[in-house]
Design a protein around this nucleic acid. Structure first.
Length: 441
RNA sequence: CGGGGCGUAGCGCAGCCUGGUAGCGCACCUGUUUUGGGAACAGGGGGUCGCAAGUUCGAAUCUUGCCGCCCCGACCA
């Protein structure tokens, strides 16, 4: 992409509304614009990152055996009345009336809808297990939206739903998602720690929140330090292997302040105790027949009797992750994107537009990086160098190639690695090889 | 939902206390000189001062009501 042909409204000054780093940088880097409280327009740069995150989530869900679908944003109140949640949900649910005075709502989640859909087709235990997911915009009328997209009212969420014949089978589904979540966050350059979450009236040990550690996190967290160093499990093809990972990760202490047990935490060796702040980026839980029972979602088992379907749901806050990743990856100059979610792989800075040799070198690099699928952003604007450097640092592309007349006389360009700040002079060919090599890893 | 604050040009702000019809920086447009880390000079465009009512000869400024947004807390992916 040529910057002269892109829509990237960067701001030099920080908008007064933004207090935390991710919100500041997302506004300054021209990623989002607030339309009203907790509702954002996703500008091209922000939208690109959002889609990359969504795609990683999609790929890992598919690997876990989940099947993608799409449910509507607007739901009929009828499903919610059947489960009793229409009254239980409270003012966080945005209620709408259509021209025929029918009660609708903008969905805050989809358990009721998918349970209704599922029961209408499935009759036999032979049709189970099933795991379905979608990635869809949701709305919760938060009392106090804040922190930009991290706590918006409208947000993009991936939610998956599992359907099993009994609690033991549901546990197998849960492990699949548990492992998939560890791999999903690792691919985004994040270390997400699963922490025990409140299971409410369901009980049991099957509810976990996934948190990334960041100073600006909303929750206080306590965990064993070793959890923060564990590598992702990667793809596992047996239930036993997945269960082993689940046991490994949940055997060490990890809890948010609501579930914190100071006595248990005290049993963790002192040098392994970590108390920090975290951002919740996912939540998975098993809820059994909470919806299937009131909705009569049943299948006939091998015993000839009807059984309530045992369900679980698994959420990833996709739009929240955009902010969450920035909280974990930035410096005073701007964002530092992990390669996997960066909106462009590298930036090319033309320091002297109009100079024949510089223009030609930039075009050459642009063509070669494009051919290598690096998806470069070429700053071909007629701005001064300093402005280009500052802008490129702000939007945080992993690598920058700086092309100017001075270096070009020696046949060199400068390659800057955004994360380390390291700069090296090299030939154009070496620069291309270096960057394509970094992305091949 | 409790407590606090803000609304003046695209962005960041001053002016309000003590009423006299709006200003600064950045951004933007034109020109000249510049050009390797957010250039300098000169000229220029852009605002029903959130909305409404009231007080007054006169309201950005005082009064009342409404709307919007933010921050702290409680709550949530």
């Amino acid at each position: 992409m040529r910057l002269s042909n892109y829509f990237l409204p960067v701001l030099k000054e920080t908008p007064a509304d933004a207090t935390i780093a991710s919100h500041r940088f997302m506004l300054r880097a021209g990623m989002v614009k607030q339309d009203s409280a907790g509702i954002y327009i996703w500008l091209p740069l922000g939208f690109k990152v959002l889609q990359k995150i969504e795609q990683i989530v999609r790929e890992e869900q598919n690997k876990a055996g989940a099947v993608e679908m799409l449910m509507p944003t607007i739901q009929s109140a009828n499903h919610w009345k059947e489960t009793g949640r229409y009254d239980a949900y409270g003012p966080e649910m945005l209620r709408i009336t259509d021209r025929g005075d029918r009660e609708l709502l903008y969905g805050p989640t989809n358990e009721d809808m998918i349970t209704d859909m599922f029961r209408s087709y499935v009759r036999s235990y032979k049709d189970l297990p099933q795991m379905l997911y979608h990635s869809q915009w949701k709305f919760r009328d938060e009392r106090r939206p804040r922190f930009g997209v991290m706590r918006g009212r409208e947000f993009l969420m991936k939610d998956a739903y599992s359907f099993d014949i009994d609690p033991a089978a549901a546990r197998v589904s849960y492990y699949k998602q548990f492992v998939a979540y560890l791999n999903t966050y690792a691919r985004m350059g994040l270390q997400a720690v699963p922490m025990k979450a409140d299971t409410g009236p369901i009980g049991g040990d099957l509810s976990h929140e996934f948190l990334i550690l960041a100073e600006t996190g909303e929750s206080e967290v306590f965990c064993h330090k070793d959890l923060v160093d564990m590598p992702p499990p990667g793809y596992l093809d047996t239930d036993e292997a997945r269960e082993a990972v689940f046991k490994e990760r949940t055997s060490l202490y990890a809890a948010t302040d609501e579930m914190h047990d100071a006595d248990e935490f005290a049993k963790v060796p002192a040098d392994k105790q970590l108390s920090a702040r975290g951002i919740e980026v996912g939540h998975i839980f098993y809820f059994g027949d909470k919806y299937s029972a009131p909705m009569n979602a049943q299948v006939q088992g091998p015993d000839g009797k009807n059984h309530n379907i045992m369900m679980g749901s698994y959420g990833v806050g996709v739009s929240r992750l955009v902010g969450g990743i920035i909280e974990a990856c930035h410096d005073e100059n701007g964002i530092i994107w992990p390669k996997s979610v960066a909106p462009f792989g590298a930036g090319i800075i033309n320091l002297r537009k109009g100079d024949e040799a510089v223009d030609a070198a930039c075009e050459d690099i642009y063509a070669k990086l494009s051919a290598a699928n690096i998806d470069p952003l070429y700053d071909d604007k007629d701005d001064r160098g300093g402005q280009k450097f500052a802008r490129m640092d702000l939007i945080g592309l992993p690598y920058q190639i700086v092309v100017g007349p001075r270096g070009l006389k020696e046949g060199k360009v400068e390659v800057k690695t955004r994360a380390s700040g390291e700069k090296q002079d090299m030939t154009i060919e070496a620069a291309i090889n270096f960057i394509t090599g970094e992305f091949a890893e």
